[in-house]
Simulated scan of single mutants.
Amino acid sequence: MMLEGGMVFMSDTRTNAGLDNISTFKKMTIWENPGERVITLLSAGNLATTQAVVSELDERLKAPSERSPSLLAVPSMFQAARLVADTLREVIDRHANVGQRADSAFNATLLLGGQIAGGPMRLFLIYPEGNFIEAGGDTPFFQTGEIKYGRPILVRAYDPKMTFAEAMTLLLVSFDSTVKANLTVGLPFDYHCYEKDGLKIGHTGRVQQDDPYFQSVSQGWGNALKDALEQQPKWTFDDAQRNPEDKG
């Protein structure tokens, strides 16, 4: 999520290959060269694919070359997005060409955001095909994975002037709504709040299932929805009462 004061990233940790094979894996990776750049990657999709992408990017930090540049060496966030997109495409192609191919079995979608000294903050949504789009004024936040339950909350309540604290509350409410409706999303949640032009890792942490604040937000949001529903005009099956302006 892009804010006037920075960027906020949040990811769940649930991965599943069916209801009897649910595990917890971190889906957030952060690379930092303090004072020069901070880059955050969030992943959704096939776990083997996303872990291979992160491993490839880490390996290039140790031995970068002109053909295989490092995320800590590319000159801009656009070039960082191109590097990650190319790596994702290569990993998917490599996996898909081994053994029996299943459509979309190795697909993954990535979010890449951050800032490099001399440039602005930028946020990209990277597709498994290797192409990507960038966040802007009309689309200030991106989601991957299971998005439909939490998205309406973000669309209604997002404000670019939000503080990090307000954005965290909004994202927790959005995630809570998704968790309530979909078993493929679950706690803990990892987060990173990056301050604009800070060029260093900001507030990071993990929200656990028993976190008192999260429990308060979850219960409070549920109660607020019930209260809002009770305050709505009562439905009636009488058309005349429901649409009094139609009376002749």
Rank of each mutant, 00 (worst) to 15 (best):
residue 45 G to S: 11
residue 235 W to F: 10
residue 242 R to I: 05
residue 182 N to S: 13
residue 227 D to S: 13
residue 28 M to P: 00
residue 193 C to E: 02
residue 161 K to D: 03
residue 19 L to E: 07
residue 9 F to R: 09
residue 44 A to I: 12
residue 153 I to H: 15
residue 209 Q to S: 03
residue 198 G to I: 11
residue 94 R to G: 00
residue 54 V to W: 07
residue 112 L to W: 04
residue 99 G to H: 02
residue 243 N to M: 13
residue 134 E to C: 10
residue 160 P to T: 09
residue 186 G to N: 08
residue 234 K to Y: 00
residue 79 Q to V: 04
residue 87 T to M: 06
residue 11 S to K: 10
residue 125 L to R: 15
residue 82 R to F: 04
residue 83 L to A: 07
residue 2 M to R: 11
residue 57 L to M: 06
residue 5 G to I: 03
residue 185 V to W: 04
residue 22 I to K: 14
residue 100 Q to A: 01
residue 241 Q to F: 01
residue 47 L to T: 15
residue 14 R to K: 14
residue 195 E to R: 15
residue 19 L to Y: 03
residue 141 F to E: 01
residue 17 A to S: 06
residue 144 T to G: 09
residue 51 Q to G: 07
residue 72 L to P: 02
residue 82 R to G: 05
residue 185 V to Q: 06
residue 133 I to M: 13
residue 149 Y to K: 04
residue 9 F to C: 12
residue 170 L to H: 06
residue 221 W to R: 15
residue 138 D to K: 15
residue 185 V to N: 05
residue 237 F to S: 08
residue 129 E to G: 12
residue 129 E to N: 12
residue 66 E to N: 07
residue 133 I to Q: 12
residue 153 I to P: 01
residue 216 S to T: 11
residue 3 L to Q: 09
residue 179 V to F: 12
residue 237 F to W: 01
residue 183 L to F: 09
residue 18 G to S: 04
